[in-house]
Design a protein around this nucleic acid. Structure first.
Lengths: 195, 195
DNA sequence: CCTACCGATCGGTAGG
DNA sequence: CCTACCGATCGGTAGG
């Protein structure tokens, strides 16, 4: 379908050149159609972008829910490691989607800030809700430090976001090593040493 | 001086709207001059941007060197805490410079990628060199875990970059708390527990 | 999905 | 530091 083709090429261009740095004509060229055809499928460049952002966010929530089911009841360490593993897979095989999300979560197009922010708040709340029970159980079982759950979750977000930034600086194999090394230290910091 | 005024306004606009999202005319308007006047001071929009990027990077290196002198010989913990404190001050009082750096380090304008990358490599090498002795001493004195220095430094970069990303999501007071909390856990992960 | 088209704006130059 | 200007491209529309 042409609509999907447009989305596919638009996402790649938005990742590499940014929203403002990508013209509708360029997207059309990559999709082998005329620029005007894009307006048969999308109201505007803005709507095309927002449709992509929405897709990516929903995909991420679906992935997390599925992943959570897969490791059901195996404990917080397994869950976090699986998220990290998934994260690595994403960067290795679906780099563009991963970068599209982060780039526009942190630096959205100026005119669309309000709309991306709204989607983002919805996303982050869901994400937190999905993880909270596992963290709570980890603390209860004495696997994690006896700290407020928000503190532990914030630390995990900080760690995961930091890794994401590092993925922009390092090549893949250096990055994999960095993930392995920093995970070891991070886990050390949140686990319960009395246990 | 008009040249400085142009730089000042350009930086702010590049932060909020991105390089491609900011027009030369817009910069001129904010600086209260005509667009053509910008070309009396800069060869091109590209050169204006690169001059800003260079400035910001040099400023950061100068800050780190100065800060290092200030805490000379007080040990790795004090040094890292001071860097973090400095980081918070930067976000509180020089937000635009801080964001300009990170935004363009991670997502540079497509056409200028090579040039920003070259500046960046220079910067990160210097930064690492400045920190390495303090990490080495920390390990030697048994204050830090007996791990490879690169591993400990990478963990610190991951932590610092993660905090940077969080600063985009949280308001200042929530952010300050997050810095405090995550630092506590991070330090726990790299210190030597035998000591 | 295309041709043909539009007003607005883009980065940049000439010449003073 | 300005006026006057330029070719190219922008996002988008009409009409088929």
């Amino acid at each position: 379908m042409t609509k999907d083709r447009i989305k596919q090429e638009a996402l790649i261009l938005f990742v590499h050149k940014g929203y403002e740095g990508t013209s509708v004509a360029e997207i059309a060229k990559q999709a082998n159609i005329r620029a005007s055809t894009i307006y048969a499928h999308f109201e505007s460049k803005e709507q095309l972008f927002l449709s992509l952002f929405d897709d990516v966010v929903n995909e991420k929530l679906k992935d997390l829910a599925e992943l959570k089911n897969r490791v059901e009841n195996k404990g917080i360490k397994e869950l976090l490691q699986t998220i990290l593993h998934n994260h690595l897979e994403e960067i290795e095989h679906h780099r563009d989607q991963a970068v599209f999300y982060k780039r526009n979560a942190i630096f959205p197009p100026e005119n669309l800030k309000d709309k991306t922010q709204a989607i983002l708040i919805f996303y982050e709340e869901r994400y937190s809700q999905l993880l909270r029970p596992a963290f709570a159980q980890g603390v209860k079982e004495g696997i994690l430090r006896n700290d407020p759950i928000e503190k532990l979750q914030t630390a995990f977000y900080c760690f995961a976001d930091g890794l994401y930034v590092l993925s922009h600086y390092y090549d893949l194999s250096t990055y994999k090593k960095a993930v392995h090394d920093t995970w070891e230290l991070f886990w050390e910091s949140i686990r319960n040493k009395q246990g």
